[in-house]
Design a binder for these strands. Structure first.
Length: 785
DNA sequence: TTAGGATTCG
């Protein structure tokens, strides 16, 4: 039977392939060579509908990807199937299935392909004596294919488009192109009849192109949300203007926009109902993302209201909760992002009847929402915005000002007229990842708590200790509630700071004080690695160090004798770039079976930082290793010995005594292997370094001041120190917590109280004895986090 | 046609 189905059990085919057949690598396929006893194996990444040729012969085309050489430049080939075989295959073949073909004819293509596909195609038919084997169950290679390419490309049969690199553009032509957004103005109302959007692109030729796009329909302009997004333009007209090439919309202009983040799903944003998008295009996007990652300067973390500073311009992602017409040339938008601006903010006076929005919500959010006044050309767009929609407002200006009846200055938010620097308003869809994150955050905000904050935040009274007015009583009552709570020893009574600094160490105290300042102000600098055995502290290594070690270890080729043991299954391949890097992945088994990727621990040899990062997204744990003569071993301990989720786990160089890798098999044999980092570290002889926050708090009360150290794994902030470096949500949470504990721009009297336990201890060196203080058994109050 | 990147009146 020419088309045969193969059943896979435990990664093995139930019926073996004919023994005379040998596997052929894609790169060895050449027209005119003898491939009689060879077979080609791959995963079907694309299949086209069954069609009939002019002579009535059935015709079926698929694209096969060589899953053993995923990282190579050429790793896929077209297979053209004719006659009865075409009909049979069309019935059973689905993308993702493993496909083997023997008895094929290799035909060289007339032109060189630039899309990563083989320069030849395979022709297959019953008449030619071909045989096809289709695997019914995902085998190991297939499993691996899914792991690295979980994005299924769109399927479509369409004419091929030719895309022009930006350094090959000619005046007066209409072209198709790809580019990475370097600058953009979100669509705005032009002085003519259309919306206008200006977009500057760059591509790997390093040439820039500024495009001016017009359309009467807002939806027909590219949906660009940030610098770094990738666009595909079809039918854009190229003209020379002021000595430079310029793009401008022509009839039939169409665009797709993609998130430019490496690893993000490749989903086009477009208003067109019909568009072409195939696996080559997906590959282009992925390649552009990788180029952009090292060639385009990415902006820092998105600004939040809690992080605004006076006198600057910033982009804000927020939700619209109210709007009002102010006068002919300005319009008010009330927005929030769940965080609190640390400065007093202005309120634009408008008549209640002019304010559109949910009254109850507006009242609840009165301390969190801010007023943004938009001017001139932005008014028309602002008027059309729907309450509740998610916006990104670009280049908002924060202006410091004070009114006659205020002692202290407040912050005003303006969106000035004009479109300089991309100033404008964009509406984000709910599917946008930033909106999803924002929504989740907004839902977590306790509105009752934010209302309690109003007295402490919107007033700025000159309250010195002991000088009490009615208003101040109010304020102090509000501040009686400490922003920290004690987790033990509640029976202890408070001690004044002066008493503590006048006493000998060691002792323990309960204190009530205010946080005047803290270090480091850049919170990410507070994260260190701590060894509980030798008590040493070290900086968290940069990714570059890891990359360097990986490069070094890639020089050691995987030792084939160490592959496929009783407790792991191995896959290897060689990259087809100049380096010919050999990569091996060892999937640790449980009960002689491969686990689901999300439960699987794997070891990798020869991988790059990017490949390892990609694997951690899909698999439970990744351990980078290298081969020795008789076992796998861990890399240098300057590199993480284990990667799990976003966290890199390191071992202490002084205290670790690495043990054989095969000790991992004892965990694999457990009933439900959990692969806890502590357990993995233990069997591998690694002394696990713990992520810890180290901060210096300057605490004051009516009697004096002292510096106390905070040494916290998780308890104080209720944020695991291990996760903060890779989680912007947690960074945000920590910044908000610190803004609550020590609100910027506030006088001492208006700072909140902190209740803490501190212990004093002596540190002696050759010349003197110094007393230090450390905070313990204290946590940030629940309503603060 | 409009805009053709390159911050701020309010």
């Amino acid at each position: 039977m020419p088309v045969q189905l193969m059943k896979i059990i435990k990664g093995q085919s139930e019926t073996p392939l004919p023994s005379h057949l040998q596997k052929e690598n894609l790169q060895h396929l050449k027209e005119g060579c003898d491939h009689t006893n060879k077979y080609v194996q791959g995963v079907v990444t694309l299949s086209y509908p069954l069609t009939k040729l002019r002579d009535g012969t059935d015709f079926f085309k698929i694209v096969l990807q060589d899953s053993d050489n995923l990282f190579s430049q050429i790793n896929s080939i077209n297979v053209l199937i004719y006659g009865k075989m075409a009909e049979d295959c069309a019935k059973i073949i689905r993308r993702g299935e493993t496909f083997i073909v023997a008895g094929f004819k290799v035909i060289k293509l007339p032109t060189v392909r630039e899309d990563g596909r083989h320069g030849c195609h395979l022709e297959v038919s019953e008449e030619a004596g071909s045989a096809i084997y289709v695997f019914l169950y995902e085998c190991l290679n297939n499993f691996f294919f899914y792991s690295l390419n979980c994005i299924i490309p769109f399927q479509s049969v369409a004419p091929k488009y030719v895309y022009t690199p930006l350094n090959h553009l000619k005046d007066g032509t209409i072209v198709n192109l790809y580019g990475i957004v370097k600058f953009f103005k979100p669509p705005y109302v032009s002085k003519g009849t259309d919306y206008c959007s200006v977009v500057t692109l760059v591509d790997p030729s390093n040439v820039k192109l500024t495009c001016t796009l017009f359309n009467g329909n807002l939806d027909s302009l590219p949906k660009i949300y940030k610098v770094g997004d990738i666009v595909r333009f079809h039918r854009i007209k190229i003209r020379e203007y002021n000595g430079q090439m310029q793009g401008i919309t022509s009839a039939g202009f169409a665009s797709l926009t993609f998130d430019g983040t490496v690893g993000a799903p490749v989903v086009p944003r477009t208003s067109s109902k019909v568009y072409t998008f195939m696996d080559e295009e997906q590959k282009t996007i992925e390649e552009l993302r990788i180029w952009a990652a090292s060639n385009i300067s990415i902006s820092g973390p998105a600004a939040r209201l809690s992080g605004v500073q006076p006198m600057l311009f910033f982009d804000l992602t927020c939700q619209l909760v109210g709007k009002a017409k102010v006068d002919g040339s300005s319009f008010l938008l009330k927005v929030w992002d769940g965080t609190k601006c640390p400065y007093p903010t202005w309120k634009v006076p408008v008549e209640a009847k002019d304010l559109e929005g949910e009254k109850v919500l507006l009242h609840q959010l009165r301390n969190l929402a801010v007023d943004i006044l938009v001017y001139d050309n932005h008014v028309q767009l602002a008027e059309s915005l729907k309450i509740g929609s998610f916006l990104r407002i670009y280049s908002i200006h924060t202006k410091q000002a004070s009114a006659d009846n205020e002692d202290v200055s407040h912050i005003e938010f303006h969106l000035h007229g004009g479109t300089c620097y991309g100033r404008g308003i964009g509406v984000l869809p709910e599917s946008n990842p930033d909106v999803k994150e924002l929504k989740a955050f907004l839902e977590s905000v306790d509105l009752a708590d934010s209302q309690n904050m109003e007295n402490t935040c919107s007033m700025d009274l000159d309250s010195t200790f002991g000088n009490v007015t009615d208003l101040e009583l109010d304020l102090q009552r509000c501040q009686q509630l400490s922003v920290t709570v004690l987790t033990d020893h509640q029976d202890l009574s408070n001690t004044e700071l002066k008493t503590i600094t006048n006493s000998t160490a060691p002792q323990q105290y309960r204190i009530r004080a205010k946080l005047r300042t803290y270090k480091p102000q850049k919170l990410h600098q507070s994260v260190k690695l701590h060894c509980s055995k030798c008590n040493s502290l070290q900086e968290v290594p940069y990714g570059d160090d890891f990359d360097f070690i990986l490069h070094g270890s890639a020089n050691t080729a995987p030792n084939p004798e160490l592959h496929n043991t009783s407790w792991y299954e191995s896959v290897t391949w060689t990259t087809q770039d100049q380096k010919q890097r050999e990569i091996a992945i060892h999937f640790v088994k449980h009960d002689e079976m491969l686990q689901h990727p999300e439960d699987t621990l794997l070891m990798i040899e020869g991988g790059t930082l990017k490949e390892i990062w990609k694997l951690t997204k899909r698999f439970k744990c990744v351990i980078p290793v290298r081969s020795t003569e008789d076992d796998l071993e861990l890399l240098d301990l300057s590199a993480p010995f284990l990667l799990q989720g976003n966290v890199k786990y390191y071992g202490c160089k002084q205290c670790s005594t690495p043990k054989p890798i095969k000790n991992l098999s004892s965990i694999a044999a457990e009933q439900r292997p959990s692969w806890e980092p502590t357990e993995v570290a233990q069997v591998l002889g690694i002394e696990l370094l713990q992520y810890v926050f180290i901060m210096k708090f300057t605490l004051v009360d009516e009697t004096g001041a002292l510096n106390a150290y905070l040494f916290d794994y998780e308890k104080f902030f209720q944020i695991p120190a291990s996760e903060i470096l890779t989680n912007s949500f947690l960074q945000q949470k920590m910044q908000m917590t610190m803004n609550t504990l020590c609100p910027p721009g506030r006088k001492l009297g208006d700072l909140p109280w902190l209740e803490c336990f501190i212990r004093s201890y002596n540190v002696r060196d050759a010349t003197k004895n110094q007393v230090y203080y450390q905070i313990f058994d204290t946590t940030v109050a629940e309503d603060v986090v």
